[in-house]
Simulated scan of single mutants.
Amino acid sequence: MYDIITAIILGIIEGLTEFIPVSSTGHLILAGDLLGFEGEAKATFKIVIQLGAVLAVLVLYWNRYMSILKDLATFNFKAKNKLNAVHMFLAMIPALMVYLLFKDVIKRYLFGSAPVLIGLIIGGVLMIIAARVKRKVTAENTDDLTYKQAFGIGLFQCLALWPGFSRSGATMSGGLLLGTSQKAAADFTFLISVPVMLGATVLDMYDSREFLTSDALFLFLIGFITAFIVAMIAVTTFLNLIKRLRLEWFAVYRFVLAALFYIFLL
């Protein structure tokens, strides 16, 4: 019963934190440590429930995904004035390659409270730099993105493989530094989240298949559904918030969270 309650709590945390640049993975690791929710299968659980929250983006951006798939089917790959599958691929491939090469090292050394706190701080510093460095905005919305900008954002997304950095925080910071508006960076971040998290979930579940008992799968389902429901409720508010609120405010939250956990957990 305790594991079920814990799964629900973590699902709520995931649904609330996935769409703001504060690192949902970092929050799940820290909360899991506090609740004693640890182990190989439970590490995979934290990835799986992220997909539940991210699928809320699939619902929200359904028409956009269908447009991208339609262009893919008709081989319409214009680099200008239309976001297409090539942009998505270029943004996804760097983090995918790094993850495949170093996933064992990442899980062994970075999925702990201390690395998460470091990631929160360094990621917060990056966000402050990105918000304050003045760049000429060449992409007001996602349709203005060039292939070069999409690939550059993908390189920044590699930083998010360090729990605590935040995928949205890293990619939005990269977008701002590469000349996108905050709105364009946020929209593109959410759009690439579905294929990225779907791939990560499939890979993690395959790697942890020996630990996936019926009890574990039941917890996965509870956390997945909870995260999806909470994310659907929160997504509109948070999407509007992240497009308007400067990244420095999220960085301050990260610093405070890291300080509190350092004092009371470590």
Rank of each mutant, 00 (worst) to 15 (best):
A91T: 02
L247F: 05
K78Y: 05
D33V: 08
A43L: 15
I263P: 00
P195M: 12
V116G: 02
L126F: 13
I263M: 09
M127L: 05
G11I: 08
L221S: 08
D204E: 13
K70R: 13
A231Q: 02
D215G: 03
L257G: 09
V98I: 12
N81G: 12
G36Y: 03
T226G: 01
V252I: 15
L51G: 02
L110R: 01
K46E: 15
V235A: 03
L155A: 14
T142K: 06
G11M: 05
G36M: 04
N81T: 05
L126G: 05
V116M: 03
F89D: 01
G124Q: 13
S113A: 13
F250H: 06
F102E: 11
N63D: 15
T189V: 01
S193H: 07
I29A: 06
L257E: 04
L10D: 04
T201I: 06
L35F: 09
G32I: 07
D104A: 03
L191Y: 10
L83E: 12
L120Q: 11
L126V: 05
F188A: 07
L239P: 00
A186M: 05
A7H: 03
S168K: 00
A150K: 09
P21K: 02
G124E: 08
M172W: 08
V105I: 09
Y99D: 12
A185R: 10
T142W: 08
V202A: 14
L212W: 02
W162S: 11
G154K: 12
L30W: 00
D33N: 15
V125P: 00
E210L: 06
T236M: 04
D187Y: 12
G164Y: 08
Q149N: 10
K70C: 04
V59R: 13
N240F: 09
S67M: 11
S193M: 12
L212M: 14
I263T: 07
S208H: 07
T138W: 04
I118H: 02
K42Q: 08
L257W: 00
E38W: 10
W162E: 09
I12M: 02
M88V: 14
L35N: 00
D33T: 10
S214L: 15
L239A: 04
G179S: 09
L260G: 04
V54G: 01
G164M: 13
I225D: 08
L203C: 05
T226L: 07
K46H: 11
A131P: 06
R135A: 07
I263S: 04
N63K: 14
I118S: 13
Y253P: 00
E14T: 00
A85P: 00
K78V: 02
F261D: 05
G199I: 01
P115M: 06
A43E: 15
P115Q: 06
G223H: 04
N76S: 13
I13Q: 03
A170S: 15
L55T: 11
N141Y: 10
V194P: 02
I9D: 03
I222E: 01
G39C: 01
G124F: 14
S168L: 05
R244W: 06
M232E: 10
D33P: 04
L30I: 14
L117F: 07
M172V: 15
I129Q: 11
N84R: 08
A131Q: 15
F111I: 12
A31I: 03
T237M: 10
F218W: 11
M232A: 10
